[in-house]
Design a protein around this nucleic acid. Structure first.
Length: 265
DNA sequence: ATGACGTGAGTATCACGA
């Protein structure tokens, strides 16, 4: 099963290229972040025509997440039950009766020392408790989306100001590490231990993509049961940077994993 | 560099992104 995540920076102007990418890459599940519309404005029909069911958690103008799946979508949960939030940022479900998927759009944070950074850090602190509760459930678990954190210096281009800047501050990196310490693996890093210049987001300004001045801030975290166990295995994963070359692209690239269910005798 | 782009709301310009 191929499960992809993509911050599309508004789904409606991006619809033709999202449909094109689906036809080329054939994901079974596509989790979208920053759809920037309400449920009734979401382009459900074009995705249904490609064979997807849609679960949408929208918001007017900002944020919003959705899960498209060729298999049954069950046990839908919107946002974190332990965190009061008037923004639409988390959508959880179980796919095909076995794979639990959490689709997350972590707040931007604006800058260190601002109220928005406080909100981001509160969000991440509570997100950890929420994920802890999900790891107690029986299903293999993957958590993917836009985390807005570049976990290590390896995940930011060389000229980035790493110590004080949003995405790279010690506070944000600590919050991300604490998530991993629950027992989750950063799948794309596990498959690319030494790789540098492996990025998922490039600023629209200053030709950042052309000079590969990016950050790796979109991630897919996997429980040990999902990553490699007698029952399940992640056999491959990647960052698909080619859509960043499209006309009117999202500033984020899609990321994906292939997870295999190993048949019991 | 208090910049650069891009999107939504709304129809001039601002909030927001990261």
């Amino acid at each position: 099963m191929k499960v992809a995540f993509w911050n599309v920076n508004s789904v409606r102007p991006r619809l033709p290229q999202v449909l094109e990418w689906i036809k080329e890459e054939q994901p079974d599940v596509l989790c979208l972040q920053e759809i920037k519309c309400q449920e009734h404005e979401f382009p459900t029909e074009p995705f249904e025509e490609e064979g997807f069911q849609c679960a949408v958690f929208g918001q007017k103008s900002y944020n919003g997440v959705a899960i498209l799946s060729k298999y049954a979508i069950e046990d839908i949960q919107k946002n974190n039950p332990y965190f009061q939030d008037d923004q639409s940022r988390i959508l959880e479900c179980v796919i095909d009766g076995w794979l639990r998927v959490v689709n997350v759009y972590v707040p931007n944070g604006q800058a260190v020392g601002t109220e928005k950074m406080d909100y981001k850090l509160d969000f991440l602190k509570s997100f950890k408790e929420y994920i802890k509760s999900r790891m107690k459930l029986e299903n293999p678990l993957i958590i993917g989306g836009d985390f807005n954190v570049a976990p290590t210096p390896q995940d930011a281009h060389k000229s980035a100001q790493q110590d004080k800047d949003v995405l790279c501050s010690p506070q944000e990196r600590k919050a991300f590490r604490e998530l991993l310490h629950l027992g989750l693996l950063d799948t794309i890093r596990e498959f690319n231990i030494q790789a540098k210049d492996l990025f998922s987001w490039w600023d629209y300004r200053s030709g950042s993509f052309q000079s590969n001045k990016g950050f790796r801030i979109d991630h897919i975290l996997a429980s040990a049961m999902a990553f490699n166990s007698p029952e399940y295995k992640i056999i491959n994963c990647g960052i698909e940077s080619s859509p960043r070359s499209n006309e009117r692209p999202s500033d984020h690239a899609p990321i994906w994993v292939k997870i295999e269910k190993i048949n019991k005798i």
